[in-house]
Amino acid sequence: MFRGSEALAAGALTRAALRGPRYRRLLPDVYTPAALEPDLALRSRAAYVWAGNRGVLTGYSAAEMLSAACAPAGAPAELALPGTHPKAPPGVLIRQVTLARDERRTYQGVELTTPVRTAYDLARRCSLAEAVVAVDALAGRFGFAPKEVLGLARRYRGARRTLRLPEVVALAEPLAASAMESRLRLVLVLGGLPRPAVQYRVPDRRAHVVASVDLAYPEQLIAIEYEGADHFAGHRVVRDVHRYTRLVDLGWRVYRYTADDVYQRPARMVAEITRALRHPR
């Protein structure tokens, strides 16, 4: 990633080459090789370069850089900048926040908020479900207890939207394996169903573990799985078929849901699991 003006000044590129098919302009004067996918991590780095390699990446940008992906599709790059600054270009969100020295770190050449501070910011800013998703992802990735978010709330008494943080922390589950698994769990819990076990290890009749399922109601022998795109790859399909067969053979009912179900048919999911819980085997 580089500034086009600097490459031109150094004679490393011509203006024609910069505008050609080999490079992609992500932000004003910020370019990358066209082969790179402009995902949130790349766009966040571009925002940092656009700001003159200053400021601090926050929120979803910090989470993405920390390999705790939890952003909804299309989330903008987020950057905290002190004082006056140029108007942010489309796709970049400038935050005005107070950060203590122990709430920021240097990672892979950029400044960003620490995992706990990132969780605190997202837990206050997002909807309840997305706040829990963020805390799940960050706490699971870095091994901190979700209640550490409440420590920052005590540091910043009176900050906006901190009153709901205990609810976010109570709903958090660091064992969640992905953001979409967290969203699936929250559809059920916020829909009024009992809290399911997470990453439950299913034993056979000799107490040997035969499968680990995303969510489970063990007493009712109900397994609930989130099926992302990776589940439909050739080798994964075969492995899943064997796993589901073992579960059914042990008397489990397996409910499999996709992103379309989570986002477009949550009421149907809640109704299906409600019926299953009311009529156990």
Rank of each mutant, 00 (worst) to 15 (best):
G74Q: 09
P218W: 08
V30C: 09
R24Y: 05
A179E: 04
V241I: 14
Y48S: 08
E181W: 03
E272L: 15
P90H: 14
A177K: 05
T114G: 07
A119L: 08
G191P: 11
P82R: 15
L247W: 12
V56H: 12
L66G: 11
V133L: 07
P203G: 02
N53Q: 14
K87S: 14
L190F: 10
R183F: 01
R281A: 13
V116H: 05
T32W: 12
L57E: 06
R155L: 13
L13C: 10
P146Y: 09
G143V: 06
R246I: 01
P21Q: 11
A276H: 13
V149H: 11
P218I: 00
L188Q: 05
A223R: 08
R45N: 07
A259D: 11
R105G: 00
A17M: 11
A119I: 10
F142L: 02
T106N: 06
R25I: 00
A16K: 14
P21V: 07
T113L: 07
T245E: 15
T274I: 02
L122I: 00
D102C: 05
L26D: 11
G151I: 03
V116Y: 09
L193C: 11
L186I: 02
Y217I: 00
A35K: 10
R104L: 02
R157Q: 13
D240V: 01
E111A: 14
A88F: 04
A34V: 07
L27F: 05
A177P: 01
L40Y: 11
V132T: 08
A197I: 00
Y120P: 00
A119P: 00
L247V: 01
A137M: 15
D214G: 11
V132Q: 11
V92I: 05
L138C: 03
E6T: 14
V135M: 05
L112S: 06
A63M: 01
V237L: 15
L188D: 04
A179N: 03
F144M: 09
V262R: 12
A9I: 02
Y217R: 10
P33S: 08
V110K: 02
G74M: 11
E181C: 03
A179G: 15
A51C: 10
Y31C: 04
Y120L: 01
G234Q: 10
L93S: 12
G52H: 08
D204F: 03
I222H: 09
A16H: 07
L190V: 09
H242P: 00
P218L: 03
L152F: 08
H279W: 13
P28F: 01
V49C: 05
D214N: 11
Y120I: 00
L93E: 14
Y48R: 04
P115K: 08
V56S: 11
H242C: 04
Y200E: 04
D204Y: 06
R125F: 12
A12D: 13
R105C: 12
H279Q: 13
A145L: 07
R256W: 10
R205K: 08
G11W: 14
Y200A: 13
V30E: 09
R268G: 12
S67H: 14
L27S: 01
E225G: 10
I273K: 06
A131T: 04
H208D: 11
L112T: 03
